[in-house]
Every structure is written in C-alpha cells, then in structure tokens.
Computed example of a mutant assay.
Amino acid sequence: MNIIIRKQGTLAIYEQIVNQLKNAIVSDELHAGEALPSIRSLAKDLQVSVITTKRAYEELEKEGLIRSVAGKGFYVCEYNTDYLREKQLMMIEERFGEIIEDCKEAGLTVKDVVEMVETLYKE
C-alpha cells in the first residue's frame, strides 16, 4: 500500500489518508482482517504528525472500515464494497459539483473542462 500526500492539495492530510485507505479497501488491495501500520509507523513513513494519522484511523473506525484491537493495532473490517463504492461516488460527485461551479465562474466552457480533465487524468 502506497499513500501519497499532496501538501498543496485541497484536502486535509488526514482526509487524503482516509480516502487512499478507502480506495485500497474498495480495490481489494487491503483485505478484511489485514493489519494496518501502527499510527506511529504510518506517521513516520508519511512524515506527518502522529495526531494526523490517529485522526485518519479514528475516522475510518467511525465508518466501520477498520477496528482497533487493544495492544495489537488496527485491522481492516469486513465491509460491503458496493456500499463503500457508492459513498465514494457521492463524495466525488459533490466535489465535482463544486469544481464545476468554479469553472462556470471562471467562464470555462464544457469543452474547456473536458479537455482539462482528460489532460489531468492522463498524468
């Protein structure tokens, strides 16, 4: 599992961690019962605060995607991938809506936006 943090991104660092772990679960890169790195280990690997990784894990635990086992760490839970995928799509649609509003305000056409998306998607 490879988590990439974009320091200049629009999402908070903990949200980037949460989203990438969710994607790893949906894509079956992380399996039910699999151990996650410790909070300290992940923080060190990503060069972020322990508080940031703790917050990401707490968010995932609230959503029922991971569970904490006292003295042992965090593990991926059994999950409904269809439900998780639907939640991801809803979040993406919401973010796209905000971006589309920004594009309209900037005077971009649909063609301009599609070209931009195609270019960025290929990167």
Rank of each mutant, 00 (worst) to 15 (best):
V114L: 15
G107W: 00
N80T: 02
D112F: 10
G71N: 06
E98Q: 09
K104Q: 03
K111G: 13
A70C: 07
F96N: 10
E93A: 14
V76T: 02
D112Y: 07
Y79K: 08
T119E: 10
E86T: 08
A106Y: 02
L89A: 10
E115V: 11
G107P: 00
C77K: 02
E115I: 14
K87R: 11
R95K: 11
F96E: 12
Q88P: 07
Y75R: 01
R85M: 07
C77I: 04
Y75C: 02
E78Q: 02
S68F: 04
V113A: 14
A106Q: 05
D82R: 05
K87T: 08
K104Y: 04
T81F: 08
V76H: 00
M91S: 12
N80D: 04
A106G: 04
G97A: 08
G73A: 02
L108T: 01
E86R: 11
T81S: 09
Y83P: 04
E115Y: 12
V110S: 15
S68E: 02
E86C: 08
L89V: 10
R85V: 05
K87Q: 10
E105M: 01
Q88H: 08
T81V: 07
C77G: 01
Y75N: 03
I92N: 10
E118Y: 15
D102M: 00
E78M: 06
N80V: 02
E98F: 11
D82V: 02
V110I: 13
R95S: 10
E86D: 06
E115H: 12
I100H: 13
S68Y: 02
R95T: 11
V114D: 12
G107K: 00
R85G: 05
K87N: 09
R85T: 08
Y121W: 15
M91E: 14
K104V: 02
G71T: 05
A106L: 04
K104G: 06
Y121C: 14
E78A: 03
G71W: 06
R95G: 07
T119I: 14
E115Q: 13
V76W: 01
I100A: 12
T81P: 08
E93S: 12
E86L: 10
D82P: 03
R85L: 09
M91Q: 07
I100K: 10
